[in-house]
């Protein structure tokens, strides 16, 4: 129920302290733990476990909050059990499939495209930038870090509105800049022209990616700067003694040492990319021609605009499975990394 909707991964645990046994505890300690934990467990069961179970159940019903339905959670009755119907529908790839199914397919494709573009682009910007910021004078470093971090704490609605204005076809800064370079009027509708496609990637999606990157890089930047500061001086000094400078140093010392951090950052970035909603909703509303329709937007639309909550729950389960698969993959990769 936390609106922050945190998404993350566990850092390597400190070695678990030697188990102390419940039996060894005094009565006062037991009372303390019990009196604190019991309400918490009840609370978690209601606000955290119940929604999860409920969401899973909804996925098997044709549910709408508009209808009364059965006694238990409004399921049954006018909101009938449909079994795997929603999931079977998802596998209907015919062009004649119902609109909601085709929109779901588009959403999955766009979501994957978005997430898999965001990660390399993010790392390509943040890694060199972190190394450069780390290499400059101390006071300047703090200032730069602050500047690049400002967008992270800016509301995403604000970010979308600002970028929407920069990309505005007639009044935007980008077209004005292009126009003055080319010496003629430029009115490209970056976020609204369905015919603008580069290979498989719609330009409108690129526009959203740019806005999202601008907002998001500050975070990885901080992580990488911290990791760079953690590189022992001795290794650097040794490399400098060997004559390593700038790029060589970065490629042969920094990158290999940062590997686990990079991997972790990459996966966190990807997982949060799957859950971006605000910028899409405000900047493009899924348009043009559904080219920027992502799963989160699709789920919201179905659940709260079309009141088709059963279907929306089923698609949200798919989102969960995608995120889960990536989390598991991440754990495997990280584990092998540490064994290294």
């Amino acid at each position: 129920m936390n609106s922050a909707a945190t998404q993350s991964t566990v850092l390597p645990d400190a070695p678990t302290p030697r188990p102390r046994f419940w039996q060894g505890r005094t009565g006062a300690q037991k009372v303390f733990v019990l009196s604190a934990l019991t309400p918490m467990i009840l609370y978690v069961a209601f606000w955290s476990l119940l929604p999860i179970v409920w969401a899973a159940a909804l996925a098997f019903f044709d549910y709408s909050a508009r209808r009364q339905g059965g006694v238990v959670l409004g399921l049954g009755g006018d909101n009938p059990f449909v079994g795997l119907q929603h999931f079977r529908n998802m596998l209907n790839f015919s062009p004649e499939a119902p609109l909601e199914v085709r929109l779901f397919h588009i959403s999955v494709k766009t979501t994957l495209m978005f997430a898999f573009l965001i990660v390399p682009l993010n790392l390509m910007i943040t890694l060199p930038l972190a190394a450069m910021i780390e290499s400059v004078h101390n006071r300047l470093r703090l200032g730069l870090r602050t500047i690049f971090f400002l967008p992270v704490v800016t509301s995403s609605v604000g970010v979308a509105i600002m970028w929407g204005y920069i990309l505005h076809p007639q009044r935007g800064l980008l077209n004005a800049g292009l126009g003055s370079v080319m010496g003629r009027m430029v009115a490209i509708n970056w976020t609204g022209d369905p015919s603008l496609i580069i290979g498989p990637i719609p330009v409108a999606l690129i526009a959203v990616i740019i806005a999202y990157l601008w907002q998001d890089i500050g975070y990885n930047l901080i992580i990488f700067i911290a990791a760079l500061q953690g590189i022992p001086e001795s290794i650097r000094d040794a490399a400098i003694m060997d004559g390593a400078t700038g790029i060589t140093m970065f490629r042969h010392i920094t990158l290999p040492l940062l590997r686990p951090t990079i991997l972790l950052a990459a996966i966190l970035t990807m997982i949060s990319a799957f859950q971006v909603f605000d910028i899409f909703q405000v900047m493009t509303r899924g348009g043009p021609d559904n080219q920027t329709r992502v799963l989160t937007f699709d789920i919201y639309d179905n659940a709260f605009r079309f009141q088709n909550m059963g279907w929306a729950a089923a698609t949200s389960v798919v989102l969960f499975l995608i995120v889960l698969a990536i989390s598991l993959l991440q754990n495997r990769m990280l584990r092998s990394e540490w064994e290294y």
Binding site: M1, S3, T6, Q7, W47, F277, L319, F320
Partner: peptide, 21 residues
Amino acid sequence: WFIVATMMIPFQVTMIPGYLI
């Protein structure tokens, strides 16, 4: 582990039942 696992669940999954609650 349950607590950690809840962080893995996308908000979009729990927002529908959350709203209904």
